[in-house]
Simulated assay, not measured.
Amino acid sequence: MSVSSRSGARTAATGRRAERRLLVCAALAPPLFILAFLVEGATRGAGYDPLRHPVSALALGEYGWTQRANFVLCGLLLLAGIAGLRTALRRRGAGAWAPLLLAMAAVGLVGAGIFAADPLSGYPLGTAPVPSPATATGTWHSLFSTPVFTALPAACCVLARHFATAGRRGWAAYSLATAAVALTCFVLASVAFDQNATLVPYGGLFQRLTIAVSLLWITAVSVDLLRRRDHQRGS
């Protein structure tokens, strides 16, 4: 083997290892983020109700830095992972739209951590259900949060088309179901946070379902790409 061939082989091997590490980042970021806000919500006390209050409200108060850090770290880890997803998906002809949409959601998580939300649904204690007018920081938080709840379902739909074209009907159905559940729960959470008397006690639950089903879909796709990648290498 020539020197150039050996160099090319080493470069390819390094690229494969880097891609695998990035895919692992994409797989781990969602469950770590979800676990962190579930633990924080269960232990916050001081009037915080995970069924009623949004995840973003955990960024308020004395220990709010923990959720702000959770937003930023998950977003950065997911951004790194999307680089691996982009390479793996492009190799399978999936195009660039899904990674772009996922990157928008990841940037949204980072921004949501930098800009804290306004109080909502009576948390922190003593605040109005919907403070008005919104602060500049709260407005920026809402703007950054929007792609987390919209770009992720859009990415599900984009990859559902790819999966269907590739004959992977189960993955196509799972992706479409994820988008449908996420968008439905997002609408219900939005109505609840607008203080609808029937839904307001469950706004936090609906929002958590939206986040969980969307982000865990990223984990599932990343694990599948890792599994297929390792299987192809072993063949």
Rank of each mutant, 00 (worst) to 15 (best):
S2A: 12
G8M: 12
T11V: 07
A13G: 11
R17C: 11
E19R: 13
L23N: 08
C25Q: 09
A26G: 11
A26L: 10
P30M: 05
P31M: 05
F33M: 10
A36K: 04
F37C: 02
G41A: 10
R44P: 02
A46K: 12
A46S: 14
Y48G: 00
D49E: 15
H53T: 05
P54T: 05
V55Q: 01
S56E: 06
S56Q: 07
A57P: 01
L60I: 11
L60C: 12
G61Q: 04
E62G: 08
Y63D: 05
W65N: 04
T66G: 06
R68N: 12
N70Y: 06
N70L: 08
N70C: 13
V72C: 01
L73F: 09
L76Y: 03
L78N: 06
L79R: 02
A83C: 13
A88E: 08
R90V: 12
R91C: 07
G93W: 01
A98S: 02
A98T: 02
P99T: 00
A105L: 02
A106K: 01
V107Y: 03
V107W: 05
L109T: 04
V110I: 14
G111S: 00
I114L: 13
I114V: 14
A117F: 03
P119D: 10
P119Q: 08
L120A: 14
G122F: 01
P124R: 03
L125M: 10
T127C: 02
A128E: 02
A128Q: 04
P133L: 09
T139D: 01
H141T: 01
F144V: 02
V148A: 09
V148C: 12
F149T: 14
L152F: 14
P153H: 03
P153L: 01
A154W: 02
A155V: 00
C157V: 14
G167S: 03
R168C: 13
R168G: 13
R168N: 14
R168M: 14
R168F: 11
A173C: 13
A177D: 00
A177T: 01
T178E: 01
V181T: 05
C185S: 06
V191I: 15
Q195F: 06
N196W: 13
N196R: 10
L199P: 03
F206L: 09
Q207H: 11
Q207K: 06
R208L: 11
I211F: 06
S214C: 09
L215Y: 14
L216V: 04
I218G: 03
T219Y: 15
S222M: 09
R227C: 08
R228W: 14
R228G: 07
Q232D: 10
Q232A: 10
Q232P: 04
G234Y: 05
